[in-house]
C-alpha cells in the first residue's frame, strides 16, 4: 500500500495559564492510500491534537516542538498558511463532532456548500457549484436534497446536519478525510447510518480516512487499522482484527475490559486516571495504572514492531 500520510516523531505542546501541557510526545503514524485508520483514546490522549496538527488547525498557543507531517512526501508543517489553504478542505478535509459548530447558522446549506466548492474552484460558476453540492448530498443519501439546500442549519436534525457536513467534506474529492468523533453526538440509530455511509463513500472513492474516537466499538466497526493513544503517546498499533482478538498492550486490554457489552456480567474498573500532562512523561505513561508494571517500566518503552503490529511496552521488548 502506498503511504499517503506519514507522521514522524511529532511532539506538540500547549502553553496554558497553568503551565506547559505536553499533548503529543514523539508520535509516529502512517496512513496508506485507501485505508481507514482509527485513532482510539480517552480524553487527554492527544488524538484531537494529532488531527489538528495534520490539518494545521492548532490554536496559537500550541507549538510543534519536533517531528514531521508528510503528506504525499511533502512536509505540511513547513507550508505557509496560504499554501496550506489550498490543501485544507481540498486534498485533506475534516469533519467534527458537533455539526452545530461546523455549520454557520446564518447561511443556507447551499451557500455554505457552494462556498466550500468555489474556494477551491475559482473558475467554476455558482451553477456548477450548486449542481456539485446536489450531487454530493445525493451520494450522502440525504433525502430530498433539493429541499435541504434551501434550508438553514437549525431546520435540520443532528443526523442530517452531519450528513450535510460529510457531503461538504467530499465536495472537492479529498484524498484524506479526518473525522474527529463524527458520531459521538448522535443517537445510535443515526450513528450506525453515518458509519455505513462513511464506509461506503470511502470505498467508492478509495479515500484515506483518519477516524478519531473514544469508542472502541465504533472503531471496531469502521477501521482497517487501529492506533491506541494514551497521554500523548502511541501505545499500540495493528490491524483491527488482530488488536481486538489479542490486545498486546496492558492499556488496550484494560480499555477493552472496561467497556460494558450487552449481556456482559461484569466489567473491570481499573483504578486511577491519566497522568498529569503538565510534566513531560519520562516513564511508561501507563505505568502507574498497569497491573503488569515492573522495574524496567520507569524507562519509557519505544514503539517497537512485532510483525505487522507495533507496541510500546517492555513486556514485548527483550532489549
Amino acid at each position: 500500500m502506498m503511504t499517503l500520510l506519514e507522521v514522524a516523531g511529532l511532539s506538540v505542546i500547549y502553553h496554558t495559564d497553568e503551565g506547559t501541557v505536553y499533548a503529543l510526545d514523539k508520535i509516529d503514524l502512517a496512513v496508506g492510500k485507501g485505508e481507514i485508520v482509527s485513532v482510539v483514546g480517552e480524553s487527554g490522549s492527544g488524538k484531537s491534537t494529532l488531527a489538528n496538527t495534520v490539518i494545521k488547525l492548532l490554536p496559537p498557543y500550541a507549538k510543534v516542538t519536533e517531528g514531521r507531517v508528510l503528506f504525499e512526501g511533502k512536509d505540511i508543517l513547513s507550508l505557509s498558511e496560504e499554501d496550506m489553504r489550498s490543501i485544507r478542505g481540498n486534498r485533506i478535509s475534516m469533519i467534527f463532532q458537533e455539526p452545530n459548530i461546523a455549520l454557520n447558522p446564518l447561511f443556507k446549506i447551499k451557500e455554505f456548500m457552494t462556498d466550500v466548492y468555489l474556494a477551491h474552484h475559482p473558475e467554476a460558476s455558482r451553477e456548477e457549484a450548486l449542481s456539485r453540492s446536489l450531487e454530493m448530498l445525493r451520494e450522502a443519501r440525504v433525502p430530498t436534497p433539493e429541499d435541504v439546500l434551501e434550508r438553514y442549519p437549525h431546520e435540520l436534525s443532528g443526523g442530517m446536519k452531519q450528513r450535510v457536513l460529510i457531503a461538504t467534506s467530499l465536495l472537492n474529492s479529498p484524498d484524506l478525510l479526518i473525522a474527529d468523533e463524527p458520531t459521538s453526538a448522535l443517537d445510535v440509530s443515526v450513528q450506525a447510518q453515518i458509519i455505513s455511509l462513511l464506509k461506503r463513500l470511502q470505498r467508492e472513492k478509495n479515500m484515506s480516512v483518519i477516524f478519531i474516537t473514544h469508542d472502541l466499538a465504533v472503531a471496531a466497526q469502521i477501521a482497517d487499522r487501529i492506533v491506541v493513544m494514551y497521554a500523548g503517546h502511541v501505545l499500540e498499533e495493528g490491524s483491527v482484527d488482530e488488536v481486538f482478538q489479542k490486545p498486546l498492550h496492558p492499556y488496550t486490554e484494560m480499555l477493552m475490559k472496561s467497556v460494558p457489552k450487552i449481556g456482559a456480567e461484569k466489567i473491570e474498573s481499573p483504578p486511577g486516571s491519566i497522568p498529569d500532562l503538565r510534566r513531560r512523561i519520562e516513564q511508561c505513561p501507563f505505568m502507574d495504572r498497569c497491573p503488569k508494571a515492573f522495574g524496567k517500566c520507569r524507562e519509557k518503552p519505544p514503539l517497537i514492531a512485532l510483525g505487522d503490529r507495533k507496541v510500546a511496552c517492555w513486556l514485548y521488548n527483550e532489549g
Binding site: 445510535v188 450513528q191 466499538a217 471496531a220 466497526q221 450487552i262
Partner: peptide
C-alpha cells in the same frame, strides 16, 4: 444498531 467492540460483528 448498537456497535459491538468486535470487528467480526459488523453492523
Amino acid at each position: 444498531v448498537v456497535p459491538e467492540p468486535d470487528p467480526t460483528k459488523k453492523i
